[in-house]
Nucleic acid binder design. Structure first.
Lengths: 213, 213
DNA sequence: CAGCAACATTGATCACGATCAATTTGCGTC
DNA sequence: GACGCAAATTGATCGTGATCAATGTTGCTG
């Protein structure tokens, strides 16, 4: 039986555009892969060999400068699409933040397949536009918001993203948000240092706006 | 006769994916429009009514905070695609930086058309991925690069973008780059203030690396 | 439970770029 | 050429967040 039939995120992922036969065909050129927390999937500057769907877990998309300065340019949750079709090299690294399960496809085979399935292309296009919107929102944050505005935006944004997609352990929509990020990652998302993140969180706690473990 | 037949940017724009008949059909649902420098085309938060192609000139895509802080999140050159299909509202403003000429389409009609022309969708998808790459490069710049690194990156990047696409008045690939931006725009692109931009340019001039008019 | 390593918090100081303010330059108009 | 206005430059000062450094917390292993 097709593993897709029991896939929890099928309807939200790009696969939702396909019927049974098409799904079987796509499944035939892919395979599932399990990643441990911290394990990399693709490297910035390396050949772009695969694309994938996130089934379970959270991954980060990063770009870095030669001297090690790094910025997280995207967070991938279940149902999100990974990779860069139409490009021979990947311009960013992808690393698992938590244990994760993904559906990988060779890029070439996937491009051929999607080329003959317009509904799939449309789904990918919608997703890519959404990612572009997110990236541009973040540009505004990175260039113009203060440290306190950044962490506030971060907490709010994450309580939407992760809770909607069931990546956070918490129950309520706002209370008890369990993020799969350490201070280092938060700093890399917000374009700040670990110390500043820590101070801002302490301030929020002191003002009684949040509670920390 | 179809205006597209004499269109200089047709092969580079998304229209390059269409044959004569298809082009005529697309042309039937669009019209050309002329914009004066400074004239807005769409507003952040307003209904997303149109999409368009840039034929001539340069436009900026911006996002702002309530208090007026602004960030330029994209620069549009001839052959670039404007707008956000699949979304009822626009999440950013688009304003002409120089006098410009564009090909506009009602969003609904365009979505219907592109839905039945997969090659067109593919072109848009390629373009959107490229824009996403650019946006993410810029995130790294905004979060991690110093003022001098920013203006250096800016000059280099622009000498690629604009000269390739014939938006800059200069002849050579590097020398005599004529940008359609004032200090205000450069500052809004780089996430800095006018004063800092000016000082950095002065420094570069003093070091003999660039010359200014 | 001691020992260790990774992560987080807190403190002290510094530097980069923002801000405030004053000229200077360029350009169109009368 | 004198005027007026917007854009750019230059200078002086200030504040936020980075940096350097020390201490505290947590969880794993023998």
């Amino acid at each position: 039986m097709l593993p897709c039939n029991t896939c929890l995120i099928r309807s939200r992922a790009i696969c939702g555009a396909l019927n049974g036969d098409e799904l079987a065909a796509l499944n035939a050129i892919g395979r599932t892969r399990v990643l441990k927390a911290g394990e990399p999937l693709m490297w910035e500057g390396a050949e772009s060999l695969v694309v994938a769907n996130v089934v379970e877990g959270v991954l980060k998309v990063t770009k870095s400068l030669d001297d090690g300065r790094e910025q997280i340019v995207g967070i991938l949750c279940p149902a999100d699409f990974i990779g860069r079709p139409f490009s021979a090299v990947s311009h960013q690294s992808v690393v698992a933040l938590s244990d994760a399960r993904i559906c990988v496809f060779a890029r070439g085979a996937f491009e051929t397949f999607s080329g003959s399935h317009p509904q799939l292309q449309t789904k990918i296009l919608e997703r890519t536009f959404s990612e572009l919107d997110l990236a541009r929102d973040w540009m505004l944050l990175l260039s113009r918001k203060s440290a306190s505005e950044r962490v506030a935006t971060f907490i709010l944004e994450m309580s939407h993203r992760l809770v909607d997609h069931g990546c956070a352990g918490g129950k309520g929509p706002i209370d008890d948000l369990r993020l799969p990020f350490g201070r280092r990652q938060i700093a890399d998302i917000l374009g700040m240092t670990i110390e500043t993140v820590s101070r801002q969180l302490t301030t929020l706690k002191a003002r009684g706006l949040i509670a920390l473990p």
